[in-house]
Write a protein that binds this DNA or RNA. Structure first.
Length: 272
DNA sequence: CAGAATACCTGCGGGC
DNA sequence: TGCCCGCAGGTATTCT
């Protein structure tokens, strides 16, 4: 569910509460996620201090002296901080307690999320080692997108959602970025002109930055489960608006399925 | 090899 | 009210 802006918002929201905090106990209520939660963390991480929190793509990384806890929220995962003990409900998988009484709770109804432990450099973890550049980094520029898309037949939308090409862009922001850049989502990636690549790069960065800003203003309170780090709403031009008028030209927005994902676009603004 | 389809889950809204 | 269907913000794995 969460795309890069949502994960970034979660990171910024929980970091002040967790940085340099020492773990006192970990309760794993329900270990079944995409992969089982390694029960070894219950022993390894007690009395260990979180030395840093960061994000790579949609992965959250909690660094300890002994290794890194890798957290992915999947489609429906949530993380929030509790000030007091609240009994776990059905989809509450893990509670990580800290010395000062706070608790980090991981909840995930659909269980596509993951909590993994690595004692190596997390960059070398199999899930992270093949990831493409961060969309907001300088590395993701026109030349990069142009060069990597050459001779590829996949739809441009599929390309920009591929984490080996570029991390962090999911269904909503791919859809919005393509509209912003006036690129038809089905354009074969290899057919993108350099100019289109330039527009797309600018649009992706713009759309993500705007969403991060919106998340930051919408979700201030990560404590106590109130003001949940849920999925905040930003104004969307096309996603979820099939059949409604284009905000630019008032044509009727159309929908498609690309790679089993719903895609909305303006047939007039976004032509192949 | 690339690209496409499938699999993993629960919850919700709509149609009947 | 209840049942069935399709759909949901992700991505590893399997297939063709």
């Amino acid at each position: 569910m969460p795309e890069l802006p949502e994960v970034e918002t979660v990171l910024v929201g929980i970091k002040p509460y967790l940085l340099n905090q020492k773990i006192s106990r970990i309760d794993i209520h329900f270990p079944k996620l995409r992969w089982p939660i390694p029960t070894i963390i219950k022993k390894i991480l007690v009395n260990q201090t979180i030395k840093n929190l960061s994000r790579r793509g949609k992965y959250l990384l909690l660094d300890f002296d002994k290794g890194t806890l890798i957290i992915h929220l999947g489609m429906s995962g949530r993380l929030y901080i509790l000030n007091k003990i609240i009994p776990p409900l059905k989809h509450d998988h893990v509670d990580i307690f800290f010395n000062k009484g706070k608790c980090l709770r991981f909840t995930d109804p659909r269980r596509f999320g993951a909590i993994l432990w690595t004692e190596s450099n997390s960059e070398e973890h199999v899930l992270l080692s093949h990831l493409g550049p961060e969309p907001l980094s300088a590395e993701f520029d026109t030349d990069y997108l142009y060069n990597i898309s050459r001779h590829k037949k996949v739809a441009t939308k599929t390309l920009i959602m591929n984490s080996k090409i570029l991390v962090g862009v999911g269904n909503i922001y791919a859809t919005e970025s393509l509209f912003d850049a006036k690129v038809h989502p089905l354009t074969p990636a290899g057919k993108l002109t350099k100019g289109q690549c330039a527009h797309l790069v600018v649009s992706i960065k713009k759309v993500l930055k705007k969403a991060i800003k919106a998340g930051g203003t919408t979700l201030k309170d990560f404590v106590n489960g109130e003001g949940n780090p849920g999925y905040f709403s930003i104004e969307l031009n096309v996603y979820g608006r099939a059949g409604e008028p284009c905000t630019r030209c008032h044509s009727t927005l159309k929908s498609l399925r690309i790679g089993q994902r719903s895609t909305v676009f303006c047939p007039k603004c976004q032509q192949k």
